[in-house]
Design a protein around this nucleic acid. Structure first.
Lengths: 137, 137
DNA sequence: TACTTGCTTGGAGTGCACTCCAAGCAACAA
DNA sequence: TTGTTGCTTGGAGTGCACTCCAAGCAAGTA
């Protein structure tokens, strides 16, 4: 669910990165990066004179945000919707605020649910440990 | 991700519930309940003389636990593995403890990730609100 | 020059977790 | 007696998020 620290080191600040550099930075596969672009989640990635993708620092920032939203279980379709709103310009800001406000509640609820489960897990672990220590006193 | 309070009311404590009662209690569909049983996630559900399933309070408790693990994103295969360990008897307790201990770390990491995202969401919402209040002073 | 590496494309394939279907049976109401 | 409802089954279908494939091109190395 979470990426290693090593993978998260942004390559030299040259402001143009190959697909494999971005893949190792984000932990997404090159396939997924191309797919994100195809479905409109990542728009207007620049190309070299030979047609290869060149990602900018701005693209990396965008992928960071997308990655966080993905970790919260936001459906790809919703992220695409957000990308469309950003592309549409500043007049969509109220709608974007609304989208994030709703998602914030979802995330809050998830944290609540996880905390409840964590308590159950702690209880179970304690129970199993108590039971096994009775076997080997 | 979370069920409504209404759905979570356990039917009259008769200790045998029909599939539709259990469906409305757990929020799972009857299809899913049968599928859980088929894959070994729910074992030995009793039957009426006409062959219909009769769930016990114990089954409901088990489904509560399964539901919590599901909310944390535990794969169904892992839950089946846990069910097998429980069926295998008390000597699998150390393995069960280990399984839960590992999953506890996963859940902790998820909570961390969600908190980070919540902060980003708060920041974005504040930014969008600040930007729109500049337009309408 | 020959080979390897890394990229390109559209479309097809995969894995997961359900979700539905068709055919059929039992119990009850009109 | 004739529906209607609620359940049964194995197997097929669905939606999501990737994931892979085959064919091909450009750049660099032996």
């Amino acid at each position: 669910m979470s990426l290693t620290a090593a993978a998260r080191v942004r390559p030299v600040g040259q402001d143009h990165y190959s697909i494999s550099e971005v893949a190792s930075y984000t932990g997404l596969s090159a396939h997924t990066l191309r797919w994100y672009e195809r479905i409109g989640l990542l728009n207007g990635v620049h190309r070299s004179h030979t047609g290869q993708r060149l990602y900018t620092d701005g693209d990396l920032d965008w992928l960071d945000l997308i990655g966080k939203l993905r970790l919260t279980g936001m459906p790809v379709a919703d992220m695409v919707r957000y990308a469309e709103l950003v592309r549409a310009g500043d007049q969509t800001m109220p709608e974007r605020t609304q989208l994030f406000r709703e998602h914030r509640e979802v995330v809050r609820q998830q944290i609540e649910d996880l905390r409840t489960t964590l308590a159950v897990l702690d209880f179970k672990i304690e129970f199993y440990e108590g039971a096994s220590s009775q076997c080997t006193p």
